[in-house]
Nucleic acid binder design. Structure first.
Lengths: 105, 105
DNA sequence: GATTAATTTGACTATCATTGTCAAATGAAA
DNA sequence: TTTCATTTGACAATGATAGTCAAATTAATC
């Protein structure tokens, strides 16, 4: 898992590697070119559905791309927060706790 | 840090401990009683500003309450996600990576 | 157990963020 | 210099969030 690249960078690299135009990929996603351009430059976030479609279109491993995407969403929540990394650690503990007593509450 | 309690539970416990009514605390927060009730039962999320005010009103350590609150926000993002805990781990790595090369990009 | 006070619920509204379109501007390639 | 691809920014549509209010429910008190 590349942790030094943004989702957008991954998408752009792979698209160019395959010689596809924004226009072509955007058409498959059924959105305007402008949005895909923004997604690739991290100016907008993709939706989960778009990520899944993009994995297919660009031959990227869906699971990896989703993890990448989710981790970015998480970081977005705490990006301006002093206490961000402490919160992350607590979130992990809570996660484990919830898993252990998996009753959904 | 209590990882087994929701923010709402913490708030309710402390409020009752102090013998305060929803009405009284809500007034200080300048919101309707109904919302505070919902916050305490985790039916709505508080805002960061409300959390800070609540820490003051209820004599809770602001930092702890904020960490608690942020971690809940993080978990909310991935609550229905299969890949949630993997995403969390990647988020932590990214976080460290960003910190190491702190240039803000 | 009737009355009163506190909390909860749900319908509704206002506000704000997100997701998109479109057209014009910019950049790159031919 | 013309053409095609990408970027930018203004705008509109949509959806999520945060709130009010009044009625319903629950808890406490007389």
């Amino acid at each position: 898992m590349k942790i030094d690249k943004s989702t957008g960078e991954i998408l752009r690299e792979k698209r160019e590697e395959k010689g596809l135009l924004l226009r072509q990929v955007a058409a498959k996603l059924d959105i305007d070119t402008a949005i895909l351009s923004k997604i690739e430059r991290s100016e907008r976030k993709a939706s989960k559905e778009q990520i899944i479609k993009l994995a297919k279109i660009l031959d990227l491993k869906e699971e990896n791309l989703l993890i990448q995407y989710l981790s970015e969403k998480i970081l977005y929540e705490i990006k301006d927060e002093e206490l961000g990394s402490k919160a992350l650690k607590v979130a992990e503990k809570k996660m484990k706790y919830i898993r252990k007593n998996k009753s959904g509450n």
